[in-house]
């Protein structure tokens, strides 16, 4: 496997996963915010903050209303993570390595690219069209992952692709858990409490974890329990504990991977400590999520240095 090709696959997968995360967040959180109980005021800008794009957004926007935020996340050219741009980037990465991608996977990425481009405009204008479009985008993304999982060799190319997915997802799960802290609902205490609970539901929905949570944890959606589930549940594919195990397995299967295995172990140690107990204060929780994000970023960097970097003599 060429180093350059491995890098392109890793990033194609990261960009696609980023699209899926953005689409899911926009769908779930959008519903919750639009449906805020009377007496509570909401900040759509929180959506941008959760994804970690607050600075990029603030540089060109003073408005933090629905319209501006949606445009920013869907189509804004200044935002490299906007759906339209992320899909285009993923397609470009895929195009440069199309010799190692299964043709049907390439075709699906290509179709997704056209769907996103063609639907972006009406999705900004009309919330109904947006829901439908986002659901279709998510479906197509799942079809791409399905094509990779079921229609290609699970060789080094697949390992780098999966690592892209796992790293991006590991990052996003911690961010989605920060949603309540980011929104900071104001106003009537009862309405605020109701909205907070809705936002926890939105976090679960954004990670397609609502039903799994209800079945395995309980009907009551409680912040701390949601965090415990999405960080520590080894059987749920978007939970940190699941992702870190997959990352370890993937990395271990690669040649010369010892230094990267070390950084994944560090990520895993943080997750293990979380499984033993979570802090009560929201501030401590926020710090913990930050630490996880740092660990995930370190894994991504280590992969880059070790496999894409050089040292060829």
């Amino acid at each position: 496997m060429l180093a350059r090709v491995a890098e392109q696959l890793f990033w194609a997968a990261r960009y696609l996963e980023r699209c899926e995360n953005t689409a899911r967040l926009l769908l779930a959180v959008g519903d919750a915010l639009r449906d805020a109980p009377p007496g509570a005021t909401v900040d759509w800008g929180a959506l941008v903050a959760v994804i970690g794009l607050e600075e990029v957004f603030a540089a060109s926007h003073r408005e933090r209303q629905e319209e501006a935020v949606v445009r920013f996340l869907v189509a804004e050219t200044d935002n490299p993570s906007a759906l339209v741009r992320a899909v285009a980037q993923a397609r470009e990465n895929a195009r440069t390595v199309r010799d190692v991608l299964a043709s049907e996977v390439w075709t699906r990425i290509n179709r997704l690219y056209h769907l996103v481009r063609e639907g972006a405009e009406s999705a900004q204008r009309d919330a109904g069209a947006r829901s439908q479009w986002l659901s279709e985008v998510i479906e197509r993304l799942d079809a791409i992952q399905g094509g990779m999982a079921n229609g290609t060799m699970h060789d080094a190319a697949y390992v780098f692709w999966r690592l892209g997915v796992v790293v991006e997802r590991g990052d996003m799960t911690t961010r989605a858990l920060d949603l309540n802290a980011a929104v900071e609902p104001q106003g009537d205490p009862l309405a605020v409490a109701a909205l907070r609970s809705r936002l926890w539901v939105a976090t679960l929905r954004a990670l397609s974890a609502l039903e799994a949570y209800r079945r395995h944890v309980g009907v009551e959606v409680d912040g701390k329990a949601v965090c415990a589930f999405l960080l520590g549940e080894r059987r749920f594919p978007r939970a940190e504990a699941f992702l870190v195990e997959e990352a370890l397995e993937l990395v271990s299967s690669l040649p010369r991977s010892e230094p990267v295995v070390g950084t994944v172990q560090q990520w895993r140690r943080v997750v293990e400590r979380i499984r033993e107990g979570l802090p009560d204060s929201p501030a401590e929780m926020h710090t913990l999520l930050d630490r996880l994000q740092v660990r995930v970023a370190a894994v991504s960097d280590a992969i880059g240095t070790r496999f894409f970097g050089g040292g060829w003599g």
């Binding site: 496997m1 060429l2 180093a3 350059r4 090709v5 491995a6 390595v97 010799d99 190692v100 080094a156 780098f160 690669l254 040649p255 010369r256 496999f307 050089g310 060829w312 003599g313």
Partner: peptide, 23 residues
């Protein structure tokens, strides 16, 4: 499928490509 930047000529004058497992 390689580009020029993926390859180099080694000391033995053989042509090598840079893979994740080494040259």
């Amino acid at each position: 499928l390689v580009e020029g930047r993926d390859c180099f000529v080694g000391e033995d004058d053989g042509v090598y490509m840079k893979t994740v497992a080494g040259p």
